[in-house]
Structures are given as C-alpha cells and as structure tokens.
Nucleic acid binder design. Sequence first.
DNA 1: CTGAAAGCGCTTACAG
DNA 2: CTGAAAGCGCTTACAG
Lengths: 330, 330
Amino acid sequence: MVTIKEVAERAGVSTSTVSRALSGKIPVNDETKQKVLLAVKELNYQPNVLAQGLKDGKSRTLGLIIPNVRNLVFPAAIRGIEDMAKKHGYTVVLCNTDEDVETEKFYIDNLRRRLIDGFIFSTARPGHEHLLELKREGFPVVFLIRQMGEDVDTITVDNYKGAYDATKYMLLRGLKNIAFINGHMDIFLYQQRFEGYKKALEEAGFPFKEEMVVHEVYGWEDGYQAMTNLLKKNLKIDGVFATSDPKAIGVIRAIKDFGLKVPDDISVMGFDNSDMAPLLDPPLTTVSQPFYEMGAKACERLIKIIEAKKKPKAKVEVLPAEIVVRKSVV
Amino acid sequence: MVTIKEVAERAGVSTSTVSRALSGKIPVNDETKQKVLLAVKELNYQPNVLAQGLKDGKSRTLGLIIPNVRNLVFPAAIRGIEDMAKKHGYTVVLCNTDEDVETEKFYIDNLRRRLIDGFIFSTARPGHEHLLELKREGFPVVFLIRQMGEDVDTITVDNYKGAYDATKYMLLRGLKNIAFINGHMDIFLYQQRFEGYKKALEEAGFPFKEEMVVHEVYGWEDGYQAMTNLLKKNLKIDGVFATSDPKAIGVIRAIKDFGLKVPDDISVMGFDNSDMAPLLDPPLTTVSQPFYEMGAKACERLIKIIEAKKKPKAKVEVLPAEIVVRKSVV
DNA sequence: CTGAAAGCGCTTACAG
DNA sequence: CTGAAAGCGCTTACAG
C-alpha cells in the first residue's frame, strides 16, 4: 500500500501538508493542494483507515448484533443498515448471538477492542441490562425492533396498535373465536401485542379466553406444534393471530395437515410482513413492520449520535404497524 | 480504554514485557509473567486491535461480498462464515453489491484501506475479472457458491451432477416433458446445470427442446412470469426443473394460478434447498446446496490462506449436490 | 500557509 | 530474560 510519506515525497511537501490537503479542514495554499492531489492520484493513494482510527479512536465501523441472520425478519433490516452505513462511509460488522448473553458480551468486548464506533442491537430483553450500561457509559447504542425502556434510542413499531388493529380487523371480518399464538412474554413487543389483542376482543364484547392463547412459541416448528395442540382441543377456532410470520407459517401448515382450509375454515393473521409473506399459500395477511426503513433509520440515528458534539437525548421512534391484506383471512 | 502502558506501570515492568507476556511467542520469566497477568486482570486490559493491526498490517477482519442478503440462499452461508470466523478470532464485514461491479470495487478499495485480511466473494461472473487480479496480487481470496476458473480457491457444489441427477430422478418418476427454467447463462453454475439437464434428457432418449427452456430468469417474480408464458403455449409440460428455489416458488405459484396442481398436473424440482423449501406448499423437492457448511468451509479456507507462511496452491472444492425429496415431484 | 515533532497503542529487533 | 528505542501510518498542536 502506498503511504502518505510517498505522496509527500512525490509532491515535494511534508506529510503534514498532505494530510491537511486531504482533510480539507485546515487551509492549504491552493497550488500546494493541487500538487498534493496530483501525487495522490498518480500513486492512487488511499489513507490507511487503521492508522487514522488509532489517532482519533474511531474506526468508522458499526456493530450489528442480532439473534440470527437466518430469522426471516433480519435480512431486510440488515440491508437497510448496510445501505445507510455505506452512504456515510461506515462499514458494518454482523454478529449473531442466538440470544445468548455471553456471546453478546463477547462480541461487545471484541468489537470495542477494535474501536467500534457504535452498536445496533436487536437483542434487547430482560437479562440484557448490560446494554443499558453500555449506553450509560456514553457509548453510542441504538435498539432496533425490540425496545427496552426509554433510555436508549430505539426504532420500533407500534406493536400494541398493530395487534389491536389486526384483531379488530379479524373481528370485523366476522371471526368470533380468535386464538393467539404468541412469542416469549419477557420480550416487550410480545407483551404489547398481547395487550392489543386483548383490548380489541374486550371492546368487541368477547373477552379473551385463556385456552385460546399460547405463549412462548418460537419459529415455525413451534408454531406448528402449538396449533396442532389447539386443534386437537376442539375449541371451534375460526381465526388465529400468530404474532410473527414464522409462527404463522407453522400455523397454516398445521391447519392444512389437520385437513382444514385457510381461510375457509380458519383464518390466519401474521405479524412482520417478511419477504416470505406474499409467497405463502395462501399469501399471508399480516401486520407490516417496515424492516428496511427501520434498519436504515436505526443506522442513521446511530451515526448521528456518533458524530454529534454533545449526545442528543434518547428518543424512542415508533413507526406505524399496518395491516397488509392478502388471502389468509376471510 | 486501559492501555498497555498502564498495565506495565502496575506490574512494574516495561510495555515490551507486557506485550511479550501476552503474546506468548517470546519467553518471559514465569514470575514476571504472573505479575503481568495479574495487572491485566485487575485493570481488565484488552489490547487495542487497531494498534496491533497497524503494526503487522493485519486487521483480523474478513470481507464478505455477496449480491444481496435478502436472497434466500445467503443467510445460511453467512451464518456458517460468521461462526467459523468467530472461532478463529476474526470478525466479518458484510457487503451487498446487487451484482454491480462498481459497488464491488468500491467495497474492495474501502476494505483494503482498513487492512482487511481477505475476502470471500459470492459474486464471481464475467465482468468481475478484477477479482482474479486481486488474487494474483497475492491477496487472500475465496470464492463461494460461484466459481470462475480454477485459479482461485473455491467452495462450490457439483452443479452438473446435481442437475443431471435431478433430471434423471424426474424422468424415473415417469415425467416426459420437463421444462427448464434457468438463470443467467453467463454465470458458470447455470451453464453446468443446463448441461446436466441436457445430458440426462439425452441419455433417456428425449433430447431437449428449445421451447421448453427459459434462461435469464431471476427471482420468484421472474419465475412466475416465465412459467406463465410457458403454460400459455400449451406444451404439455408435466414437470419443471427450476434452477433455484426462488424461481421454483414463482413457478409453483404460476401453475396454481393457472388452475393446475403441483405435483398432480405438473411436478416442480428446485435447486438450493434454502430454508424456505420445506415450508412451501407443497414442500419443495429440490437439489441441496449445504450453504452453512459451504460458508464455514470457505471461511476456514480463507483463514488458512491468510495465516499460511507460503500461500497454498488454489483448490476448487466441489461438494455433492443431493436431491432432497419432498412433495413437489410425483 | 507549512514543517518538524510528538503521539495514538502496540510490537519487535537491538542491546545488554 | 528484559528494557529502551524505533516504527507501523496517520493527525495535529506548536512554532515559525
């Protein structure tokens, strides 16, 4: 790699001048500048980012910590982050934790040694209070999708209203016995979705029934199992609200395997509007989380925090969660 | 961050000694070593990776260049790479190019300035000869999934045999009119799959027909369109071999929308065995590429190249592509 | 406006 | 075995 020294020699100036001509922050005589720029071009000089980083303690690198890239919801978010990072000259390091706290801590440590400039986490949940600590230390942190309190900048969706609207929509379509297949209740967004569901039922005069609700369901296999169990209980279910697309996929499969039809016999509502939703059979009616935009916003926010002179006050940004009507609800 | 200087002071030795005690490569008196280790522990010292990198020109970071994370086939591969990188103390930067050469070059430049140690590319195809150049320069490079010649280390799958076997399998199941929905023929693996298809047909005494083959199809929308066009031509198709799972998804959708059944009226074979394949309706019979393992192997190979004293000769590793029988073929 | 010098946090060849 | 010094490639306060 060609270094600043070689450029300086070729341009007949000191390395300081080269540095200044390139940074643009400090005035340099125009003629000198031209000489430098010429030498830079001729040698195809590219400053060494590690050396720059060592100087000012920044690496122009962002850490993205998620449970698992293979989860349907992340690729779109990653893309949003990536594109925004690129636009601002940042690079992003991807880390999968499988929800494991130790793995998460390992990555945080590891990346801090690399002078990472900030983190985006999609892993917030009880047991991960060290993330709040990181933020308190003054380290740039943004939460994406999952929220934990109000003290960390967060990009999320209106999970309560999304679930409320979805349930109400199903009710309006004439469904009367709507089961609820939910995720882990220690994750805030699943609490909110549950609240939305309950509220809509209540307002419609059909208070929710314990036996129609299953929590702690994760992924499509689990969703399949949960739905199969429900089906066997003969509860006259005519609709299911699955609080994620993967769960909905398992639910639909279970209904079909039980010999019933979606939506003719049982309607299914998902949550996520992941890339797969339109490809299912029937195409999935679901609540949309705009993952790409959310990722882009989270990244933009993080960069703003990193580059701010004084840290702005944390803000939780709640985007609307809208129903995308397709074919899985009557 | 605590620096090596503080550790040295606390342990009452020089920074050189701290460095040596930690590296382990150079002998240090056992007692001294213990003092150092204690100080390291007490201060929770973590060496600054940027500073280390500046010294030996390495960053312990790998660049992964793919067309798009949102393509179904990549998440599993990424996970394999990630897990292996973590095991060896490397970090990976993810870059999406959308197949654009300029974007790819931008990332390569950008990452080289960050002293990236090596690259994994899943973007090889004509027009990307600069990747071969990179390798020729002595830069550690591995190709994943897509191959381009024999001069770069590559982890791929036996695309010819996979396609041959899949076609033969369909033939054996009694199918006689098998259409072929293919990707861009400038990508080597699509050439190979096409060859495999032709060979199997030929051997069975049904030489392939031009009107049954569509090239340049990308993604499920395209697959839908291609299949719809084929269907309208009334070619008595009883089977379709789509050379990627996304295309197969579009093909199945098109067949259903045409009022026909899969596999009763038309069988569909995919290629990839992506995470979605078992979730389709019907579950997709497809040729398996073991993405996770391929990613892990590519990463392992890259690290081996990076850490080798003298560069090993490039090797193209071809893994078997096996048929995963599910329900989309009679 | 420009150069020489110091320093970012490490590692390692050179002495001892 | 250990320390002082030099150096990795930059940037920037200090002089001029």
